[in-house]
Amino acid sequence: MSDTSKIEIRSLRKSFGDNEVLKNINLEVPKGGVVALIGPSGSGKSTLLRCINLLVVPDGGSVRVGDTSFSFGDGARLPDVRTLATFRATTGMVFQHFNLFPHMTTLQNVMEGPVTVRRMAKADAEKLARAQLAKVGLAEKADQYPATLSGGQKQRVAIARALAMEPDVMLFDEATSALDPELVGEVLAVIQQLASEGMTMVIVTHEIAFAREVADRLIFMRDGVVVEEGPSRQVIDHPQEAATRAFLSHFHRAGALPPANATS
C-alpha cells in the first residue's frame, strides 16, 4: 500500500448478471491527483467510478479511499448501511443528470448534506452553503428552485452541494454530457478551479481536450479492462494502442470534415 495515494483500487471485479463489466481493474490516485477516465459507452468507466464510493458494490477486489478500505469477494462480509453512509460522506459525487432535489431551493440543496448527514447547526450550514454557492458563481441564485436554473447552473449547484460535505475526493460522472454545448464551459471552469486547488478527482468524461488540459493521468477503458494508461497529454497525443487511437480519432477532428478518401 502506497503512503501517498488517496485512492487505491485493487483487482476490482463487477458483473451485472452474465455481463462482466469490470475485469480486474487496478487504479491509484495520489493526493491532489486528477485522473480522467475515457472510453466508449459500455466500457465500464461509470461503473468503476461508482465503485469508488460504493454506490455500486463490487463482486471482488478492494477499494480504499483515504484510511478506509473495503474488501469484496468470497468470505468478505458486505459493509452495513451505516458504514457505507459514513464512507460515502467523505467522497463527493457529481452526476450526469445533476440529480438536484427539486423540492428544495438551491441553498437548501447545498445545506442538506451538512444538516442531515454532518448534523451541523442550521446557521453554520447556511454560511457554508452560501460560501460554496459563491465559489461556483451562483450566490444570487440561493433562493431559487432548481427548475428555474439552466443546465450549467444546475450542475454548478450540484458541485457546490458535493463540496459542502468538504470531501477528500470528488468524482465526476459525465458531468457535462447532458449540457447544451454553450453551457459546458462554465462547468469545466469550476472543475478546473478545483483541480488547481489540489482536490483529488476522478473524472469520467467525453471532453478529450479538457481531459488533456486538466488531468494528470488518463485511463482509456474498453470492455471492462484498462487498455492504456499514462500522463494525459502523452496518451492523447501519442496513443500506443490501436484501440485508443481508434477511439480518439472520433474526437481529434471534431468540427472538421472527415479527411477526403481517394476518389473512386
Binding site: 451505516r82 453512509a85 452526476f95 440529480n99 442531515t116 448527514v117 452541494r161 458535493a162 460535505m165
Partner: peptide, 17 residues
C-alpha cells in the same frame, strides 16, 4: 427517479434518511 436516492446516498445519507 432513482437518481434522487443515489444523490442522497452519495452525500452520505442512510437509506432511511
Amino acid at each position: 427517479d432513482k437518481g434522487q436516492s443515489e444523490a442522497g446516498a452519495a452525500l452520505g445519507m442512510t437509506p432511511v434518511q
